[in-house]
Nucleic acid binder design. Structure first.
Lengths: 141, 141
DNA sequence: CTAGAACAGTTCTAATTGCAATCATCCGAG
DNA sequence: CTCGGATGATTGCAATTAGAACTGTTCTAG
């Protein structure tokens, strides 16, 4: 017979598995859609997060990766003419990543693709709302 | 003025971000706890998923990684004496990964560590229950 | 029974990612 | 002002991970 503590850690583990599973599906979805545009998953993630000109460090934070990795991804996107490194207006150390018109257009196409068949589509808007609140609460700490 | 479709894709994107954020926290938590036992995050994940003897492919599935990677991780755990590759009773192609007593004991310790300060702790049992149902529903497809 | 496809595991290679060190710049205490 | 610590970006290197090729075994259509 399981103690109350044991069952609680068990559901916790199960829940972690579900969160990871969903995150993996989101990642796979991104990977597939990005691939149709000739982008890797990371490049797609970078493009998705570039809602506005931002610094390399901020991009790394949004992508949950190391700055060195963001540099790597930015290099590729820059080579392909999707973004440019502009000098930061207030800080000469920093660089502002700015999407080119070509990059902005590609971003729009990617966002369109990502909104199709979202892994979250099985949930109704109300359920998504509840989910959002729960996740936000869990992430506060 | 945003159309209904635009706001929906926006909340969808936001929600994906939250799911990824929580998954990252779970991963970081695992990495930290595994480190205290001298294990990498992947080794910890493998140990966590080895709830019973299983095949390498099943482990790879549970870890959401390629079989080649599971081979790599299993090698390390085997070197350290935490698991053994036994011949599979029904399939001579497959191997059964079996935890040694030493491995089983380490797994217990890891699970104990993982249950402390879980990233999901901020949620009440009732909230965790709702979350579980929502995630399960999203993952069915 | 027997090919041929499918599958489990491993190996090799390439790509991705993280980590430590470095350089340039910024900020704050005194 | 200025010096020391902190910060942004980059680089080089090591470790992790994915993907294709290969071997041996199983399954299945005929």
């Amino acid at each position: 017979m399981a103690t109350e503590r044991e069952t609680r850690t068990q559901t916790d583990r199960q829940l972690c598995g579900l969160v990871n599973g969903l995150a993996n599906q989101i990642e796979a979805h991104l990977r597939a859609r990005a691939a149709t545009l000739g982008l890797t998953a990371s490049q797609g993630a970078a493009l998705r997060e570039l809602t506005r000109p931002m610094t390399l460090r901020e991009l790394a934070g949004r992508m949950s990766c190391e700055p060195s990795n963001a540099t790597f991804v930015a290099d590729r996107l820059e080579e392909q003419g999707y973004l440019e490194r502009h000098p930061h207006p207030d800080d000469r150390r920093a660089k502002q990543l700015v999407l080119t018109p070509k990059g902005t257009e590609l971003r729009e196409r990617l966002l369109d693709l990502l909104s199709e068949d979202s892994p979250l589509a099985p949930l109704s808007p109300e359920e998504q709302d509840i989910l959002q609140r729960l996740l936000a609460r869990a992430l506060i700490r």
